[in-house]
């Protein structure tokens, strides 16, 4: 897979699926916090973010930049970084859509979780060389190591 390796602890994956299930039929979105490791990028925490696109919440998301700002600040203080984002595709596959590609940034992993009739299904991750570029699928690995596994947690959206 050309998109690199994304180490995503099972507890973080479960948190993303749970968020998607709760938000259904709307899209859920959130932030991946982690670090660069030898094999790729390791997520240590996922944080829920608010979707500001209330007009089209069922098929679009605009992640609240204030949630993003706070995640950047807190990740930096912990010696970590925002390494990507997640969102859900209610009743659509976990592939990156043309909309996703057109609005994507290089340097991040984008996790997408599909939901069918409200039930979480496939979870895949993508990277992009540039905005509008073809998505490159990341290899999602469940564990990176025990040392940081216990740090993984799902936290509520800021101010929410």
């Amino acid at each position: 897979m050309e998109g690199g390796v994304l180490c995503l602890p099972r507890s973080c994956e479960a948190a993303i699926r749970r968020h998607g299930e709760e938000a259904y039929p709307d899209e859920a979105c959130g932030i991946l916090i982690g670090r660069t490791v030898s094999r790729g990028v390791a997520v240590v925490e996922v944080r829920r973010a608010r979707n500001l696109n209330t007009d089209r919440a069922r098929d679009r998301y605009d992640l609240d930049p204030l949630d993003q700002l706070r995640a950047e600040e807190e990740a930096g203080l912990a010696g970590l970084a925002v390494v990507g984002f997640y969102h859900t595709h209610p009743d659509h596959p976990a592939s990156a859509s043309r909309t996703d590609a057109n609005l994507a940034w290089p340097g991040y992993h984008y996790v997408i979780c599909a939901l069918a009739q409200g039930k979480p299904g496939d979870l895949r991750a993508w990277t992009f060389r540039d905005r509008g570029a073809e998505p490159r699928e990341s290899r999602v690995e469940a564990e990176e190591g025990r040392s940081w596994r216990s740090r993984c947690a799902s936290r509520p959206p800021y101010g929410g």
């Binding site: 899209e27 696109n53 950047e72 909309t99 996703d100 940034w105």
Partner: peptide, 12 residues
């Protein structure tokens, strides 16, 4: 001063 890239998308 923080530079924040807007994160958005959706399907299809």
């Amino acid at each position: 001063l923080s530079i924040i890239p807007a994160i958005a998308g959706g399907c299809p």
